[in-house]
Computed example of a mutant assay.
Amino acid sequence: MTAKIGIILAGLLGMLGVAAGAFGAHGLRDRVGPRELEIWNTGAHYQQVHAVVLLAVALWALSASTRGEPVALHGVAMSLFVAGIAIFSGTLYAITLGGPRILGAVTPLGGLCLLAGWLTIVVLGLRQVG
């Protein structure tokens, strides 16, 4: 993934995360139970946090590319964060809106993508130190 695409996706995912949070607070509050609302809010929270992280990695990649440094690993991290948001938050939203509970078995795959994205940042950091 390129820095430009990462920045654009970060903006879109951040905006949609805010919209999801507002929808949960105002549109779902009287339509679902407290447990379902908690599930929705977890999805919105993780989406917003990781949209900011995606933006940071994209800006890091942009900066690195202007210095002539390799940015392939930045692209891997960005892709993992986008996949993680889509799978983790997406399945939580779907479950809250009445989707099949079996989606709960897929949700951890999104969490693994998010963890792998963070691990990729660790590797990038270790490469910077050396």
Rank of each mutant, 00 (worst) to 15 (best):
S89R: 05
L73Y: 05
R31G: 06
E38C: 10
H26C: 14
P34D: 08
F88L: 10
L55T: 00
T91K: 04
V76T: 14
P34Y: 10
V57W: 00
R35A: 15
L16I: 13
I8G: 07
L59H: 06
V53W: 06
V53Q: 11
G21N: 09
R31L: 13
P70D: 09
D30T: 15
V57P: 00
W60V: 05
A64P: 06
G33I: 13
G90K: 07
I39C: 08
L9D: 02
Q47G: 11
A77Q: 03
I87D: 02
G68V: 05
M15L: 15
G90L: 10
V32H: 04
I85Y: 06
E38L: 09
H45Q: 15
W60H: 11
W40Y: 08
S89M: 13
S63N: 15
F23P: 05
L55G: 02
L9R: 04
V57E: 00
L62K: 13
Y46E: 09
V52H: 12
S63F: 08
G43F: 02
G90W: 03
L80N: 08
I85D: 02
G11I: 03
G75S: 02
E36W: 13
Q48N: 15
L13I: 11
A72H: 10
F88G: 07
E38W: 02
G75F: 09
L80G: 03
S79L: 14
Y93G: 03
R29V: 15
P34A: 12
S79C: 10
A22K: 06
V76S: 12
G24V: 04
G84F: 05
L80I: 06
L16R: 04
L16P: 06
N41C: 10
A94P: 03
A22G: 03
L13G: 01
H74Y: 03
L54C: 11
G17K: 03
I95M: 13
S89W: 06
A20T: 01
A51P: 08
E36R: 14
G24T: 06
I8D: 08
A58P: 00
R67Y: 09
I39V: 15
I8R: 07
H74V: 02
F81G: 02
L28D: 04
Y93R: 12
P100W: 01
M15V: 15
L92T: 03
S79G: 14
P34N: 08
V18P: 01
W40Q: 00
G11F: 09
M15P: 04
V52T: 14
N41K: 15
A83P: 00
Y46P: 00
L80P: 02
L73V: 14
L9F: 13
A25I: 12
V52Y: 08
A19Y: 09
P100E: 08
V82I: 14
E69R: 15
M15N: 11
G75C: 05
G84S: 12
N41Y: 14
R31A: 15
F81A: 05
L54I: 09
L9S: 04
S63P: 07
T96N: 03
A58I: 01
L55C: 12
A86G: 11
L37I: 10
A51N: 00
G68T: 10
A77D: 08
A58K: 07
V71E: 01
W40D: 06
G24L: 01
